[in-house]
Design a protein around this nucleic acid. Structure first.
Lengths: 197, 197
DNA sequence: GTCTATAGCCAGATAGAC
DNA sequence: GTCTATCTGGCTATAGAC
């Protein structure tokens, strides 16, 4: 592993845990097992290092969303596919959703520019498809954007609000992971039940 | 309005927007229209000022949850009541969910101690009630904790991930608020549809 | 109580040896 | 490319006048 990779991985861990403002360059250096000066040698400054980490995180999320959203499957199958593969992905990167949401909140201008490029998660095709299936009486009438929010909420929320969920339900990390495994298949059926004719 | 109140309100605005680490005492003083030294005179230090703000935010959320969770209504009615009144509340405090979730993430130990006192949001009664209604064949079999996560996710997520939602759906603040108004009544029916026999 | 001025510290950034 | 040592600025916090 190159030094640059060591730094990048360390930065990802620290930034995801503490956010941009809370993270310390010294902490990242310690985590990477190298000297603080190397961070500046490799990434110029904190801002640029953060951007590298954030863009990487963000760009991991988008493509697989679009792949599913724009496939030829039915709405129901897309819901199954999305929830299942997305939860699988987020179980491996549990801090990602909270990190992205937090930094979007603290730094809207920066992120919004991001959401205008061609790689952004783009639900246009899926929205049209939902409207069509409603017209074809496959799905009960619903505002497609609301349905989209529902799908993402059911999938992403428990990870974004991990501490809150664990605290409220008083469950351990192990129990939490088990519940998320269960959600991989269960929530698709919940959502489909709620809209099917 | 007393000086202390002016500071507290200013602190709430800045902390909710920037988080603990990102907030600057100077910024809070400016927002309050008073001198930085007064912050320390009234609240001793940043940590204590933050705790005052956070506890206030948190304690606004919990009691009304418990009131609904522990009432004598049916599960369906509790779902209707909760989603409606909770969204109404959060529309007036749109930064609260993201703030609480963010600081829970960045400061787990501190918050977890909080979640053990008697005022914490406590779903025990509701979980038992869900189990009973499943046994009575009113509700389809479901893990009650999963249902609880679903309800909170559908309600809270769009506010916690406000920027992400607006960015993905490319909607304005006005459209967003209109959609949240719609959700007040629509999501309860979605959830009920997904579990009713 | 409210201000100005400043102490003291900490973190990001750089200089320069190797 | 990697380190040690150091600079510099900014931020929390306090001292002290009024």
């Amino acid at each position: 592993m190159t030094t640059e990779e060591k730094i990048f991985n360390a930065a990802r861990i620290i930034f995801q845990k503490k956010g941009f403002a809370g993270a310390r360059m010294q902490e990242i250096a310690d985590q990477a097992g190298i000297n603080k000066a190397m961070l500046h040698y490799c990434f110029k400054n904190k801002e640029l290092l953060f951007q590298a980490v954030f863009m990487n995180a963000f760009s991991q999320l988008a493509p697989q969303i679009n792949e599913i959203f724009n496939s030829k499957a039915s709405v129901f199958d897309k819901i199954r596919k999305f929830t299942n593969s997305y939860i699988s992905f987020v179980i491996l990167n549990p801090y990602l959703p909270q990190f992205v949401i937090q930094e979007m909140n603290n730094n809207p201008e920066f992120v919004m520019s991001f959401l205008r490029n061609e790689n952004r998660p783009n639900p246009t095709v899926l929205i049209a498809q939902i409207e069509k299936e409603i017209a074809d009486s496959i799905i009960n009438p619903i505002n497609p954007k609301q349905l989209l929010i529902n799908i993402i909420a059911m999938t992403v929320f428990p990870f974004a609000a991990q501490m809150m969920v664990k605290g409220m339900l008083q469950i351990s990390d192990t129990e939490f992971t088990a519940m998320m495994e269960e959600r991989k298949t269960s929530i698709a059926e919940q959502i489909i039940n709620s809209i099917k004719r």
